[in-house]
């Protein structure tokens, strides 16, 4: 993996003004993945969107880590179901038009 795909946790936490322990806690709950490289800890830039979402839920809505774990899994299911609904609606339209 290229270096550009990763962002140092220290840089991230300084920029967003969040404690490093929060990131470590998220990893403990397997909500994000931490990459250890060159003796430093990184997160994948592809996870930034999800990480920002988890931060909003935790800091803005005061949802604790156990709650985040539950909410995150449920949201994943909601998003999958929404995609399935769109796909089914498109299929249904196919038969309605016949």
């Amino acid at each position: 993996m290229e270096v550009t795909d990763l962002i140092s946790i220290t840089t991230f936490c300084t920029h967003y003004n969040v404690p490093v322990t929060f990131i470590n806690d998220l990893q403990d709950y397997e909500l994000i993945e931490i990459v250890v490289s060159d003796d430093d800890n990184y997160i994948k830039t592809t996870q930034l969107n999800e990480l920002e979402k988890l931060m909003r839920l935790h800091f803005d809505l005061h949802i604790n880590l156990e709650g985040l774990d539950a909410v995150y899994n449920l949201l994943e299911r909601v998003e999958n179901l929404q995609s399935e609904v769109i796909s089914l609606q498109n299929t249904l339209r196919l038969y309605e038009d016949l």
Binding site: K53, R56, I63, Q82
Partner: peptide
């Protein structure tokens, strides 16, 4: 506010 924000927050109500 907190109660309503948790209910209607866009992150919890995708799309």
């Amino acid at each position: 506010y907190r109660k309503l924000a948790r209910k209607h927050h866009p992150d919890l109500n995708p799309n």
